[in-house]
Amino acid sequence: MPNIIVLVKQVPDTNAKIVVSGDRVDLSSVKMVMSPYDEFAVETAMKHKEAAGGEVTALTVGGAGADKILKDAKAIGVDHIVRVEASQEMDSNALQTVLAQAVTELGGEVVYCGKSAADTGAGSTGPGLAERLGWTSVSNVIGATFDGGFSVVTPSGGDHAKMSLSLPAVISCDKGDFKVRKPNVKGIMQAKRAAVDVRSIEVPASSITVVNQSLPPAKPAGKTYEGGAAAAEVANLLRDEANVL
């Protein structure tokens, strides 16, 4: 029975307005939530457990504030919640090194994560972690089946490919054609009482540092027309002014 790990990350609510103060994004008044693609990872991890047995551990890296999303995962039904204590900024190399050690300590055999986190949008963690562990990885997975071996569906050259693989593996999840389960009252009550297993792992130095963050440059005001007849003029502008046709 597989030991299943699902990586979750705390990010600003995707509907939040991002403000910059000085040369950094200021998240102090923004609601923090589980990164949306991680919800598909949690759902797929739970399906894997239902099909093959085993236990699911939700794992995050961060400060105590990140316990909230671990409790959210617990309310949905994961068995264990683990946080690696960390407060500093980490580049991909540092974060993946920490995660690889945590997954090894936890004895994980399959790791699920979101295809990218809503803050960085990078999508480096799943494949990078797999490489460090020497495991297979498949990214942008939109569905998984567990009967008669393990297979996943992923985009491939404009089509979809159903791929079979063997464990251990890291699977990064895109939005699939399925609903994610929501916590029920019993789950929420259990999550309240659940203790977070807090671990400490040495963080290697980062070779990438953030210089500054800023708002994207404002676009110059566009031209606005009233009435559908203006579409003819806009078509001309697209050809002659914008040169995009």
Binding site: P12, G121, G128
Partner: peptide, 29 residues
């Protein structure tokens, strides 16, 4: 090595990418 994804500008060793789904830009060194 470390990885920087989605670069939209490179200036020396400073690399800029969109973050927060393009709601902000981040430059790293």
């Amino acid at each position: 090595l470390s990885v920087v994804q989605d670069a939209v500008a490179i200036d020396g060793n400073n690399i800029t990418s969109p973050v927060y789904s393009g709601k902000a830009m981040q430059t790293v060194s």
